[in-house]
């Protein structure tokens, strides 16, 4: 559970999981409700909600996990329509595309990126303090929804 809570903390989210609902398959973490557990055998490939994986001792969150975190109090930026689409296409976020933010605005911190409907599009690292309106780039894209398409090609 530690990789998940440690990652969440980097987004200023305090989250706990019931340990008996979490499953690790090789390096991948899944959240499986009680109903599913009766059907979980050792050789399952995928179960419930995929939360992320460990690779070279680093945790890589899934987009589902980011979506769960986005429903809590967290570092978030809300971006405009055009910026949202560019972000989903893998681009970084320009300061002028940021409509609002909450939580940490400090350079180097992680932040979730949400569209105007407050739907989570992914996350990134703050490149310059978000209060600095003279900055051109605001958030470096780390993971976005477009990954669902890119990973299949």
């Amino acid at each position: 559970m530690k990789p998940l809570t440690d990652f969440a903390r980097q987004l200023s989210v305090s989250i706990t999981f019931q340990p008996d609902l979490l499953f690790v398959k090789k390096n991948r973490y899944f959240l499986a409700k009680k109903d599913l557990q009766n059907f979980l055998q050792r050789d399952f490939y995928y179960a419930g909600t995929y939360l992320g994986k460990i690779k070279k001792e680093k945790f890589f969150p899934s987009l589902s996990f980011l979506s769960i975190l986005s429903r809590k109090k967290a570092n978030k930026i809300i971006v405009g329509k055009k910026t949202a689409w560019l972000f989903v296409c893998g681009r970084d976020v320009f300061r002028k595309g940021v409509k609002s933010f909450c939580g940490s605005h400090k350079q180097g911190d992680y932040t979730l990126v949400l569209n105007e409907y407050e739907e989570c599009l992914g996350f990134g690292r703050i490149l310059r303090n978000l209060t600095d309106k003279s900055a051109r780039l605001a958030v470096k894209n780390i993971l976005d929804l477009g990954d669902y398409l890119r990973r299949e090609t």
Binding site: L31, A32, K33, D35, L36, F39, L40, Q41, D43, F44, Y45, Y46, A47, G48, T49, Y50, S62, L63, S64, S67, Y148, R151, E152
Partner: peptide
């Protein structure tokens, strides 16, 4: 083919499914 299946489940926020090869 399980990769595409899992990807589809994750994208559509399916939480009640277990996949086996």
């Amino acid at each position: 083919r399980l990769f595409a299946l899992s990807n589809h489940l994750e994208r559509c926020r399916v939480a009640n499914t277990v996949v086996y090869n």
